[in-house]
Lab assay of single mutants.
Amino acid sequence: HSHMSHTQVIELERKFSHQKYLSAPERAHLAKNLKLTETQVKIWFQNRRYKTKRKQLSSEL
């Protein structure tokens, strides 16, 4: 499990705020920019979407 830097997370968050789903080319581009693997980016987005979904569910209770 590799640790992401604060800067990388900020960039991922910024991208996520604009779009929740990335196409393969977008993911490849973002990964390259942030010096991450595409898998890391993919998993981060999956986890981030899951967290957002959970938060929405709990706020509706």
Rank of each mutant, 00 (worst) to 15 (best):
L22F: 01
N47E: 09
H29S: 13
I43Q: 08
R54I: 10
R14Q: 05
E13Y: 05
E26K: 03
L12Y: 01
R14I: 07
H29A: 13
K35S: 11
S5K: 02
R49E: 03
V9H: 14
S58L: 12
F16Y: 15
K42A: 10
A24K: 12
E13G: 02
L12K: 01
T7N: 10
H1L: 10
T7K: 14
V41C: 04
A31Y: 01
A28P: 00
I43A: 06
V9L: 12
A24C: 07
E60F: 05
A24M: 05
S5F: 04
W44F: 04
K32A: 10
T7Y: 14
F45S: 00
A28S: 07
E11I: 06
K51R: 13
L57P: 14
S5M: 04
E11V: 07
K35E: 07
H29C: 13
K55S: 11
L34M: 03
T52W: 13
S23C: 05
A31M: 02
Q8T: 06
I10A: 10
L22T: 01
K55C: 15
F16R: 02
F45C: 04
E60T: 04
S5W: 04
E38M: 05
H18L: 09
K20A: 08
R49Y: 06
L36F: 01
R49K: 03
E60P: 05
T39K: 13
R27D: 01
Q46P: 03
N33F: 12
T52A: 15
S17R: 14
L34K: 01
T7D: 11
A24S: 07
S59P: 14
S59K: 12
Y21S: 04
L36W: 03
Q56T: 06
S23Y: 04
S59L: 07
N33Y: 12
K51A: 13
E38Y: 05
E11Y: 06
L22D: 00
I43T: 06
E11A: 13
E13K: 06
Q40M: 04
F16I: 02
K51N: 09
L61M: 15
H29L: 14
K51W: 12
M4E: 01
L61V: 14
F16T: 02
R14P: 02
F16L: 03
H29M: 13
V41I: 12
S17L: 11
K32H: 10
S59C: 15
Q46C: 11
L61K: 12
Q40S: 03
Y21C: 07
S58H: 08
L57R: 09
I43N: 09
A24W: 09
W44H: 00
S5V: 03
S59D: 15
K35F: 12
L61I: 13
L30K: 00
A28Y: 05
L12A: 01
H29F: 10
A28F: 06
T39F: 11
S2M: 11
I10R: 12
H18F: 08
L34A: 02
Q19H: 08
N33E: 14
T37A: 03
K20G: 05
V9M: 15
K53Q: 09
E26I: 04
K42C: 10
L12T: 03
R14K: 12
H1C: 15
K35P: 00
S17Q: 13
I43D: 08
Y21W: 12
L57I: 12
N47I: 12
T7V: 13
Q46I: 07
T37M: 03
S2G: 14
T7L: 13
L12N: 00
H18N: 08
Y21A: 03
Q46D: 07
V9G: 02
S5P: 02
K35N: 14
E11P: 02
L30G: 00
Q56C: 15
T37Q: 03
L22S: 00
L36N: 00
F45I: 03
R49P: 01
S17A: 14
H6Y: 10
K42N: 06
S5D: 06
Q56M: 08
F45W: 13
M4D: 03
S59G: 15
K20D: 03
S58I: 08
Q19I: 06
K55E: 14
Q56Y: 08
N47C: 15
S17E: 13
E60H: 06
R27M: 14
T37H: 04
E26P: 00
K20Y: 05
W44R: 01
T7M: 12
R27I: 15
Q19L: 10
H6T: 07
Q46G: 04
L22I: 05
S2N: 10
